Amino acid sequence: MQVGNSTVLSSGTYWGQFEEISKYNTQLNVAERLWAAWYAWMQNDVLATGIMSFVMHEAVYFGRSLPWIFIDTLGLFNRYKIQGNKIPSLREQWDCAKFVLLSHFTVELPQIWLFHPMAQFCGLSTSIPFPTLWTMAYQIAVFFVMEDTWHYFSHRALHWGPLYKAIHKIHHQYSAPFGLAAEYASPIEVMILGFGTVGCPILWCAVTGDLHILTMYIWIVLRLFQAIDAHSGYEFPWSLHHFLPFWAGADHHDLHHEKFIGNYASSFRWWDYVLDTEYTPDALKRRRENKAKVSNKAQ
């Protein structure tokens, strides 16, 4: 393996690779050396990326869901529960976890395995050094906007009668969502909505030729956090939308599950506002006022 201006010698263990890389590439930071050692030790980029991607996804998804399980089970923040009369039982949580795990291994794992060849074809970088924080920050901001747009229109389409019954109804089994239920969905829906999360960065990479897989990983981690927190069912005084009014958050998505209409976007509120699919007390009031104005003009 070539790292910087040095060639890493073959070594029998991961830590042996790490020591070799550290010896000849002192300009790299610890994270970059750990990263390079992983790919050098695996000797197979597809395998290295596939294992790392799947383990990261599972650790983040279930790791971020775990606090919400404790909060629901122990009743720690019941006063902040949006639908306070609908607390998920441990049985519901367990049934949901089993379904999600099955989906991860049968639907998402093959997609993750194919991710590296497709991404490499589009020019995705796995090399070191890592991109700058600024580069990663602005690219992730772009991905949030792109994915939110994809999610809004595809999610809204899934609420069309035939598609809802055939595909999206599974996700709405829980009218009061909880963290683990973020990816409780039909395999077809997982592929459709998941395309926005993975496809938008790959499209960016294909057009610009500038994307590192680390940026992709950080984006996916943040997107998982957003999806799980949006399904948490809790509205806190410190929730992000109180500081960023255009952020969607749990209150936005919880209403969608409760009423089965409106609030189709994932991260932001602007598509629902612009296309008049927002379902909030303010939006309902605004519609009533507009309807009254039209009625008065007609008279």
Rank of each mutant, 00 (worst) to 15 (best):
P177W: 01
T197Y: 09
D45Q: 11
S6G: 03
W38I: 06
I87M: 10
I202P: 03
K293S: 13
I21E: 02
F18E: 07
R79Y: 01
H171D: 01
R286D: 11
T26K: 15
A157Y: 07
S89A: 02
L124F: 13
G84C: 01
W38N: 11
R287P: 12
F178W: 05
H231I: 01
F268D: 02
A36R: 10
G199D: 07
W204H: 15
Q226W: 03
L193P: 04
R33S: 04
L124T: 11
Y273Q: 13
L275G: 06
F121G: 01
S267C: 12
Y61G: 10
A59T: 13
Y264H: 12
I170N: 07
A185H: 01
V190D: 08
Y279K: 06
M191I: 12
K165R: 15
Y138H: 13
L240S: 06
I82M: 07
W219L: 06
T126G: 05
T49C: 10
W238V: 11
L34N: 13
C205Y: 00
A166S: 13
K23M: 05
S103K: 06
Y217N: 09
N44F: 04
L163H: 09
A182S: 14
K98Q: 09
E235P: 00
G161C: 06
R287D: 14
A283E: 02
A248C: 05
G75M: 04
A97D: 03
F77R: 14
A227V: 03
P245V: 02
P281V: 02
A292Y: 02
R64N: 09
M42N: 10
F99Y: 14
F225N: 15
A36G: 06
W113F: 13
P245E: 04
I213L: 12
A283P: 12
R33A: 02
F115P: 03
E19P: 06
G209M: 04
Y184L: 04
I69Q: 08
T208G: 07
D72K: 05
P110Y: 02
A137P: 05
V107G: 04
D72L: 01
Q226G: 06
L180S: 08
T126C: 05
E183G: 06
G63M: 08
F153V: 04
G161L: 11
Q120G: 09
P201F: 03
V294K: 13
S295D: 15
C122D: 00
P201Y: 00
S10D: 10
S89T: 15
T13P: 14
P129A: 10
Q299W: 02
T106Y: 08
H171W: 02
L203C: 10
I112Q: 11
F144R: 00
T106L: 12
I51H: 07
S186M: 02
Y152Q: 05
T126N: 10
N290F: 05
I69M: 11
W247K: 06
F243K: 10
C205W: 00
P162E: 00
A59I: 11
V142H: 03
R33Q: 14
F105P: 02
Q43A: 15
G194L: 04
G50M: 01
K98P: 00
D272K: 05
T149E: 01
F236V: 09
T215K: 08
L193G: 09
P201T: 04
H155L: 04
L203T: 09
A298F: 03
Y39T: 12
M42Y: 07
G123F: 03
R288N: 12
Y152R: 09
V274R: 07
D276E: 09
T7A: 11
F246R: 11
